[in-house]
Amino acid sequence: MNASQVLFLVFAALTLGSALMVVTTKKMIHAAFWLIATLFGVAALYALLNAGFIAMVQLVVYVGAIAILFIFAVMLTRKDLRDSAKSLNANWGWAALFSALMFGGFAILLRQWDGFGMKEAGALPATDMITKLGTALVTPTQYLLPFEVASVLLLAALIGAVYVAATNK
């Protein structure tokens, strides 16, 4: 086992462990902070794969914006922020069954995939990577449509949020 494999295991354990804490911890706000640890672990995994851009996007968008929005939501909706409740309800058995089925299904599907044996592609020179990505985003034969649709999607999200907030006011 080489060093990068050890690092991978460490960060995978961090990600899974904190994900487990998100669903088991009793305080809402602690769950939010554990979620941040999970997201951070995923960012670290991206960084290990030398995908610096995705890792930074993960931090900027998820830790910097979405996690903060979660914390805002928790702080704004709960009367008592130390609110704690049972983390299981009556349907936990069904949930566990479906999760197990899903996991099993994915495991069977992935067993037939031959991608695991693939060697990792040699990394592009660091400066080229972002340029390539940017070019791909605005080239009509590549990802131009998704790029512009992303903008429309964001607009829809914003309008929806504003509409909901305006009607609640």
Binding site: V60, V61, A65, K132, G134, L137, A150, S151, L154, L155
Partner: peptide
């Protein structure tokens, strides 16, 4: 959040 996601898309665009 919306603007944050937007800027993420704009960075590769600006570089290239």
């Amino acid at each position: 959040l919306v603007f944050d996601v937007e800027t993420v898309f704009l960075f590769p665009w600006a570089v290239s």
